[in-house]
Design a binder for these strands. Sequence first.
DNA 1: TCTACATTTAGCCTGTCTGCTAATCGTATG
DNA 2: CATACGATTAGCAGACAGGCTAAATGTAGA
Lengths: 97, 97
Amino acid sequence: MSKSKALKEVEVADSVFAALAHPARRQILLSVHYRGACNAGEIANRFECSWPTTSRHLATLVASGLLDVDVVGRERIYRANARCVQGVLSKWASYFD
Amino acid sequence: MSKSKALKEVEVADSVFAALAHPARRQILLSVHYRGACNAGEIANRFECSWPTTSRHLATLVASGLLDVDVVGRERIYRANARCVQGVLSKWASYFD
DNA sequence: TCTACATTTAGCCTGTCTGCTAATCGTATG
DNA sequence: CATACGATTAGCAGACAGGCTAAATGTAGA
Protein backbone atom coordinates (compact mmCIF):
# COMPACT_ATOMS: atom_id res chain seq x y z
CA MET A 1 0.00 0.00 0.00
CA SER A 2 1.57 3.25 -1.13
CA LYS A 3 1.36 6.54 0.65
CA SER A 4 -1.31 8.96 -0.40
CA LYS A 5 -0.22 11.96 -2.40
CA ALA A 6 -1.37 14.30 0.34
CA LEU A 7 0.65 12.48 2.96
CA LYS A 8 3.77 12.65 0.84
CA GLU A 9 3.25 16.36 0.35
CA VAL A 10 3.01 16.90 4.07
CA GLU A 11 6.23 15.01 4.60
CA VAL A 12 8.00 16.94 1.89
CA ALA A 13 6.81 20.25 3.34
CA ASP A 14 8.01 19.08 6.70
CA SER A 15 11.55 18.41 5.62
CA VAL A 16 11.74 21.40 3.28
CA PHE A 17 10.62 23.87 5.91
CA ALA A 18 12.91 22.26 8.46
CA ALA A 19 15.82 22.61 6.05
CA LEU A 20 14.98 26.22 5.27
CA ALA A 21 14.76 27.09 8.95
CA HIS A 22 18.49 27.60 9.28
CA PRO A 23 19.95 30.82 7.85
CA ALA A 24 23.17 29.12 6.76
CA ARG A 25 21.22 26.56 4.76
CA ARG A 26 19.14 29.23 3.06
CA GLN A 27 22.31 31.07 2.20
CA ILE A 28 23.95 27.92 0.83
CA LEU A 29 20.89 27.11 -1.23
CA LEU A 30 20.70 30.56 -2.77
CA SER A 31 24.40 30.65 -3.36
CA VAL A 32 24.44 27.28 -5.11
CA HIS A 33 21.45 28.27 -7.19
CA TYR A 34 23.07 31.46 -8.45
CA ARG A 35 26.39 29.83 -9.18
CA GLY A 36 24.71 27.00 -11.02
CA ALA A 37 26.78 24.11 -9.72
CA CYS A 38 29.37 23.88 -7.01
CA ASN A 39 31.47 21.25 -5.40
CA ALA A 40 31.49 21.02 -1.64
CA GLY A 41 34.82 22.77 -1.33
CA GLU A 42 33.71 25.89 -3.15
CA ILE A 43 30.73 26.07 -0.87
CA ALA A 44 32.56 25.34 2.34
CA ASN A 45 35.29 27.87 1.63
CA ARG A 46 32.87 30.71 1.29
CA PHE A 47 31.18 30.09 4.61
CA GLU A 48 32.49 30.87 8.00
CA CYS A 49 31.70 27.66 9.73
CA SER A 50 33.93 24.62 9.52
CA TRP A 51 33.92 22.30 6.56
CA PRO A 52 32.24 19.39 8.40
CA THR A 53 29.50 21.70 9.59
CA THR A 54 28.85 22.91 6.06
CA SER A 55 28.93 19.32 4.92
CA ARG A 56 26.16 18.48 7.32
CA HIS A 57 24.08 21.41 6.12
CA LEU A 58 24.56 20.15 2.59
CA ALA A 59 23.39 16.69 3.62
CA THR A 60 20.28 18.19 5.18
CA LEU A 61 19.50 20.11 2.02
CA VAL A 62 19.98 17.00 -0.10
CA ALA A 63 17.80 14.91 2.20
CA SER A 64 14.99 17.42 1.86
CA GLY A 65 15.30 17.43 -1.91
CA LEU A 66 16.35 21.07 -2.13
CA LEU A 67 19.77 20.16 -3.53
CA ASP A 68 20.80 17.43 -5.92
CA VAL A 69 24.24 15.85 -5.85
CA ASP A 70 26.35 14.27 -8.53
CA VAL A 71 29.37 12.31 -7.48
CA VAL A 72 32.16 12.89 -9.97
CA GLY A 73 35.39 11.23 -9.05
CA ARG A 74 36.20 12.41 -5.57
CA GLU A 75 34.14 15.55 -5.87
CA ARG A 76 30.48 16.12 -5.25
CA ILE A 77 28.72 18.56 -7.44
CA TYR A 78 25.73 20.23 -5.89
CA ARG A 79 22.91 21.85 -7.79
CA ALA A 80 19.80 23.58 -6.50
CA ASN A 81 16.53 21.83 -7.23
CA ALA A 82 14.49 24.85 -8.19
CA ARG A 83 11.41 22.78 -8.84
CA CYS A 84 11.42 21.49 -5.28
CA VAL A 85 11.83 24.93 -3.72
CA GLN A 86 9.11 26.40 -5.84
CA GLY A 87 6.82 23.44 -5.49
CA VAL A 88 6.66 23.85 -1.76
CA LEU A 89 6.92 27.61 -1.39
CA SER A 90 4.55 28.67 -4.11
CA LYS A 91 2.01 26.11 -3.03
CA TRP A 92 2.13 27.52 0.48
CA ALA A 93 1.99 31.07 -0.80
CA SER A 94 -1.07 30.15 -2.83
CA TYR A 95 -2.92 28.94 0.24
CA PHE A 96 -3.01 32.57 1.31
CA ASP A 97 -4.37 34.10 -1.87
CA MET B 1 20.56 55.32 11.88
CA SER B 2 17.85 53.02 10.64
CA LYS B 3 18.35 49.52 9.39
CA SER B 4 18.65 48.98 5.68
CA LYS B 5 15.69 47.48 3.91
CA ALA B 6 17.71 44.43 2.94
CA LEU B 7 18.75 43.79 6.52
CA LYS B 8 15.18 43.98 7.71
CA GLU B 9 14.13 41.53 5.03
CA VAL B 10 16.76 39.07 6.14
CA GLU B 11 15.55 39.32 9.72
CA VAL B 12 11.94 38.87 8.70
CA ALA B 13 12.82 35.83 6.61
CA ASP B 14 14.73 34.48 9.54
CA SER B 15 11.85 34.61 11.96
CA VAL B 16 9.26 33.58 9.39
CA PHE B 17 11.14 30.48 8.33
CA ALA B 18 11.90 29.63 11.93
CA ALA B 19 8.21 29.92 12.75
CA LEU B 20 7.18 27.80 9.79
CA ALA B 21 9.67 25.10 10.72
CA HIS B 22 7.32 23.47 13.20
CA PRO B 23 4.47 21.38 11.77
CA ALA B 24 2.08 22.40 14.52
CA ARG B 25 2.65 26.07 13.76
CA ARG B 26 2.07 25.57 10.05
CA GLN B 27 -1.12 23.73 10.87
CA ILE B 28 -2.27 26.48 13.23
CA LEU B 29 -1.50 29.14 10.66
CA LEU B 30 -3.42 27.41 7.90
CA SER B 31 -6.28 26.62 10.19
CA VAL B 32 -6.60 30.21 11.39
CA HIS B 33 -6.40 31.47 7.84
CA TYR B 34 -9.24 29.26 6.65
CA ARG B 35 -11.48 30.00 9.60
CA GLY B 36 -10.88 33.71 9.25
CA ALA B 37 -10.50 34.61 12.89
CA CYS B 38 -10.21 32.52 16.01
CA ASN B 39 -9.69 33.06 19.67
CA ALA B 40 -7.00 31.08 21.42
CA GLY B 41 -9.45 28.62 22.91
CA GLU B 42 -10.89 27.56 19.58
CA ILE B 43 -7.40 26.96 18.33
CA ALA B 44 -6.12 25.18 21.40
CA ASN B 45 -9.12 22.88 21.58
CA ARG B 46 -8.58 21.57 18.11
CA PHE B 47 -4.98 20.63 18.68
CA GLU B 48 -3.67 17.72 20.62
CA CYS B 49 -1.06 19.49 22.63
CA SER B 50 -1.83 21.35 25.81
CA TRP B 51 -3.21 24.84 25.85
CA PRO B 52 -0.01 26.47 27.13
CA THR B 53 1.97 24.77 24.41
CA THR B 54 -0.40 26.03 21.76
CA SER B 55 -0.28 29.43 23.37
CA ARG B 56 3.48 29.48 22.92
CA HIS B 57 3.18 28.49 19.30
CA LEU B 58 0.74 31.34 18.82
CA ALA B 59 3.19 33.76 20.41
CA THR B 60 5.91 32.58 18.05
CA LEU B 61 3.65 33.12 15.06
CA VAL B 62 2.71 36.59 16.25
CA ALA B 63 6.33 37.52 16.88
CA SER B 64 7.24 36.54 13.34
CA GLY B 65 4.37 38.59 11.94
CA LEU B 66 2.52 35.61 10.52
CA LEU B 67 -0.43 36.12 12.83
CA ASP B 68 -2.04 39.30 14.07
CA VAL B 69 -3.79 39.46 17.38
CA ASP B 70 -6.58 41.64 18.73
CA VAL B 71 -7.27 41.72 22.40
CA VAL B 72 -11.03 41.89 23.03
CA GLY B 73 -11.99 41.73 26.64
CA ARG B 74 -10.42 38.61 27.99
CA GLU B 75 -10.16 36.98 24.61
CA ARG B 76 -7.51 37.22 21.95
CA ILE B 77 -8.59 37.07 18.39
CA TYR B 78 -6.02 35.73 15.99
CA ARG B 79 -5.97 36.36 12.27
CA ALA B 80 -3.51 35.17 9.65
CA ASN B 81 -1.40 37.85 8.03
CA ALA B 82 -1.61 36.64 4.46
CA ARG B 83 0.54 39.48 3.21
CA CYS B 84 3.40 38.46 5.46
CA VAL B 85 3.26 34.79 4.46
CA GLN B 86 3.13 35.63 0.81
CA GLY B 87 5.70 38.37 1.04
CA VAL B 88 8.31 35.96 2.27
CA LEU B 89 7.33 32.77 0.47
CA SER B 90 6.67 34.17 -2.96
CA LYS B 91 9.81 36.26 -2.84
CA TRP B 92 11.80 33.14 -2.07
CA ALA B 93 9.98 31.15 -4.72
CA SER B 94 10.81 33.88 -7.22
CA TYR B 95 14.51 33.59 -6.53
CA PHE B 96 14.31 30.18 -8.20
CA ASP B 97 12.53 31.20 -11.38
C1' DT C 1 51.38 1.03 -4.19
C1' DC C 2 51.99 5.32 -1.75
C1' DT C 3 50.62 9.80 -1.12
C1' DA C 4 47.67 13.65 -1.57
C1' DC C 5 43.27 15.40 -1.73
C1' DA C 6 38.00 16.05 -1.41
C1' DT C 7 34.70 15.13 1.49
C1' DT C 8 32.08 12.79 5.07
C1' DT C 9 31.47 10.38 9.52
C1' DA C 10 32.13 9.91 14.50
C1' DG C 11 31.97 11.69 18.84
C1' DC C 12 31.28 15.22 22.00
C1' DC C 13 29.54 19.48 24.16
C1' DT C 14 26.47 23.19 24.53
C1' DG C 15 22.48 25.61 23.84
C1' DT C 16 17.79 25.97 22.11
C1' DC C 17 13.13 24.04 21.43
C1' DT C 18 9.07 21.74 22.89
C1' DG C 19 6.19 19.53 25.89
C1' DC C 20 4.16 19.26 30.36
C1' DT C 21 1.91 20.94 35.01
C1' DA C 22 1.17 24.50 38.22
C1' DA C 23 0.70 29.21 39.06
C1' DT C 24 -0.60 33.80 37.66
C1' DC C 25 -3.00 37.68 35.39
C1' DG C 26 -6.79 40.27 33.85
C1' DT C 27 -11.64 40.66 32.57
C1' DA C 28 -16.53 39.61 32.97
C1' DT C 29 -20.44 38.78 35.67
C1' DG C 30 -23.64 37.36 39.47
C1' DC D 1 -16.55 41.87 45.82
C1' DA D 2 -16.16 37.04 44.84
C1' DT D 3 -15.91 33.78 41.58
C1' DA D 4 -15.39 31.86 37.10
C1' DC D 5 -13.16 31.96 32.88
C1' DG D 6 -9.82 32.94 28.91
C1' DA D 7 -5.32 32.96 28.29
C1' DT D 8 -0.41 33.52 29.36
C1' DT D 9 3.80 32.94 32.19
C1' DA D 10 7.03 30.20 35.10
C1' DG D 11 9.72 26.49 35.69
C1' DC D 12 11.40 22.12 34.60
C1' DA D 13 12.77 17.69 32.00
C1' DG D 14 13.88 15.53 27.83
C1' DA D 15 14.83 15.69 22.90
C1' DC D 16 17.08 17.78 19.15
C1' DA D 17 20.16 20.79 16.51
C1' DG D 18 24.42 22.78 15.45
C1' DG D 19 29.15 23.78 16.31
C1' DC D 20 33.79 21.93 16.75
C1' DT D 21 38.03 18.61 16.20
C1' DA D 22 39.77 14.28 14.97
C1' DA D 23 39.35 10.20 12.36
C1' DA D 24 37.89 7.73 8.39
C1' DT D 25 36.59 6.95 3.46
C1' DG D 26 37.36 6.81 -1.19
C1' DT D 27 39.44 8.46 -5.51
C1' DA D 28 43.42 10.41 -8.38
C1' DG D 29 47.81 10.43 -9.72
C1' DA D 30 53.06 9.77 -9.26
